[in-house]
Simulated scan of single mutants.
Amino acid sequence: MDTTGLVWRKSSRSGSGGNDNCVEVAFPSPQVAVRDSKNPPGPRLAFSAPAWRRFVRR
């Protein structure tokens, strides 16, 4: 998946004060991209939209 130009979002509940132990998500249709906020250029995962919805619901 090409993630160039994606807008990455971090949860508003991720905390502040240097607490960057979070994931960031982007929504390039029809997939959802996920990356580690501590290592933005590092590996990324891609999930189908239905798989992401199931994950978030649980």
Score class of each variant (00 low, 15 high):
residue 5 G to M: 05
residue 55 F to V: 06
residue 47 F to L: 15
residue 10 K to P: 03
residue 20 D to C: 10
residue 20 D to V: 07
residue 52 W to E: 01
residue 6 L to V: 01
residue 15 G to M: 06
residue 17 G to K: 00
residue 49 A to C: 05
residue 32 V to G: 02
residue 19 N to D: 11
residue 8 W to H: 07
residue 6 L to I: 01
residue 29 S to K: 14
residue 44 R to C: 10
residue 15 G to V: 03
residue 47 F to W: 14
residue 41 P to M: 07
residue 8 W to A: 06
residue 40 P to S: 07
residue 54 R to H: 13
residue 54 R to P: 03
residue 53 R to N: 09
residue 30 P to I: 10
residue 30 P to S: 12
residue 12 S to A: 15
residue 29 S to L: 13
residue 29 S to V: 13
residue 1 M to Q: 14
residue 25 V to K: 07
residue 21 N to D: 13
residue 35 R to M: 02
residue 28 P to V: 11
residue 25 V to L: 12
residue 55 F to M: 11
residue 34 V to F: 09
residue 15 G to A: 09
residue 3 T to A: 14
residue 28 P to I: 11
residue 1 M to S: 15
residue 11 S to M: 08
residue 9 R to Q: 15
residue 21 N to K: 12
residue 29 S to Q: 14
residue 57 R to I: 09
residue 23 V to K: 04
residue 2 D to I: 07
residue 31 Q to N: 15
residue 52 W to I: 01
residue 56 V to N: 04
residue 15 G to K: 05
residue 52 W to H: 01
residue 6 L to Q: 01
residue 44 R to I: 03
residue 57 R to D: 12
residue 46 A to F: 13
residue 39 N to I: 02
residue 55 F to S: 07
residue 31 Q to K: 15
residue 54 R to Y: 10
residue 47 F to A: 14
residue 57 R to N: 12
residue 32 V to E: 02
residue 38 K to H: 00
residue 21 N to T: 11
residue 1 M to H: 15
residue 4 T to C: 13
residue 23 V to D: 03
residue 56 V to A: 09
residue 15 G to I: 02
residue 56 V to S: 03
residue 27 F to W: 06
residue 51 A to L: 04
residue 46 A to N: 10
residue 49 A to Q: 09
residue 52 W to R: 01
residue 20 D to Y: 05
residue 34 V to Q: 08
residue 4 T to F: 13
residue 47 F to P: 08
residue 1 M to I: 14
residue 41 P to Q: 08
residue 5 G to F: 08
residue 50 P to D: 06
residue 18 G to C: 00
residue 45 L to M: 05
residue 3 T to M: 10
residue 56 V to D: 03
residue 33 A to G: 09
residue 20 D to R: 08
residue 54 R to M: 13
